[in-house]
Nucleic acid binder design. Structure first.
Lengths: 212, 212
DNA sequence: TAGATTGTTAATCGATTAACAATC
DNA sequence: TAGATTGTTAATCGATTAACAATC
């Protein structure tokens, strides 16, 4: 049933941001070759990913930048802007709240929640930080469907359960905790520290090679 | 020449953090099955990844937790703690500076750099924020080999070039900019917003299915 | 027309999973 | 011994890349 793979869907937002930049610079046409240079993704891959959106390009010219933005946004359902609640207003949470490109990406963080008295009541980028106790009730009343977890990993599972009980259908998880949730809940996990091994390992390998 | 793949190396830090937690809880033995449940990675995959480190387990018991931590740390070269400079002390930069598990992961952020007068001079988690002008000189003098970029994407390439010129050999890039650097520089890119497409797309697909 | 790009099919490559003997 | 786990080989699966006809 699930024919289109997540890996393809994950690349589209990357193209989108580059194309946005081109649009802002007044560029009207782009091609798979140009996007390949900008993103490092193979040009055939890019053609296939664009084909997913149903867009047809023009041989010799490529794709119209505005049409491409529209097609990707439509495919990813970014035209309907979903409201999201964020739990955990630490530095990472604040970084997300301050991200100014969400609106163009189909999402809007409308409130943040925390348990720390120091944070509650603050307003960041027009987003208020509320006490965690209010989460379940507000989520139900406002029919919020997306929850963002930027808490310490220890409490992530607990938060996820509160989210699911409150009607959240998609969770964006910024902890390394593997969340156990019902099958119909979409979970997208971002592990900030995955790359930490690659850097130290590759640098060490390099030094050893040079020594040879 | 490069036999071991990055994808395997990227999973090891994930295992590591879970095993750290077990160790803290006083657990002495673990197995591929347990790690598989905790991380969602297939148990055969975990066995292969552990085999990379050269560690041999005990049938019926699994692996000794402390030996496993030691073997992973050794393999990833986390015993030599590398000093790193971070550029861009916004919220994301601060989130990284506050991360308290770096030391165990072979890295220490020793200073941060920014161009904003509001940030310069602040001290976060014992890390001072210095003016960007001092970056090149300090990097050379202190022989810093790892640079972390948490700036806006527009300036990432420029920062990367300053880093390479100053002797940096590994770059941890938190922008979506594809950095153009010499072949001998290791670049590890983390794109926070990759998942943004998956959530909205999958949720929309789900709704459409239900409507059928 | 020549040439650059599209879109698609086929081939390759690598990662994941299944199967199973060995072991304590 | 029985059973759970290891480590490894073989099979599968999916993603990436190469090749090429079609097109403007």
């Amino acid at each position: 049933m699930e024919i289109v793979k997540n890996s393809a869907i994950r690349r589209l937002p990357l193209y989108y941001r580059h194309i946005q930049k081109m649009d802002a610079e007044g560029i009207e046409f782009t091609s798979a070759r140009i996007l390949s240079e900008l993103t490092g993704v193979h040009k055939t891959q890019i053609r296939k990913d664009i084909a997913l959106t149903g867009l047809v390009g023009v041989p010799r010219r490529g794709h119209n930048v505005k049409a491409l933005l529209k097609a990707i946004a439509k495919y990813l359902n970014w035209n309907d802007i979903s409201s999201a609640f964020l739990v955990g207003a630490g530095n990472l949470g604040k970084a997300l709240i301050n991200y100014d490109n969400f609106e163009a990406s189909g999402m809007r963080i409308v409130a943040a929640f925390d348990t720390s008295v120091n944070e509650i009541g603050k307003v960041i980028n027009n987003v208020e930080i509320l006490p965690m106790e209010k989460f379940a009730d507000l989520t139900k009343r406002m029919h919020i469907k997306i929850g963002i977890i930027t808490t310490p990993p220890e409490v992530a599972q607990e938060i996820a359960e509160i989210m699911v009980d409150s009607g959240i259908k998609g969770i964006w998880n910024f902890t390394y905790t593997q969340l156990k949730v019902p099958d119909d809940i979409v979970v997208e996990t971002v592990d900030l520290y995955r790359g930490l091994g690659v850097l130290s390992k590759r640098l060490a390998d390099k030094e050893n090679e040079e020594r040879k």
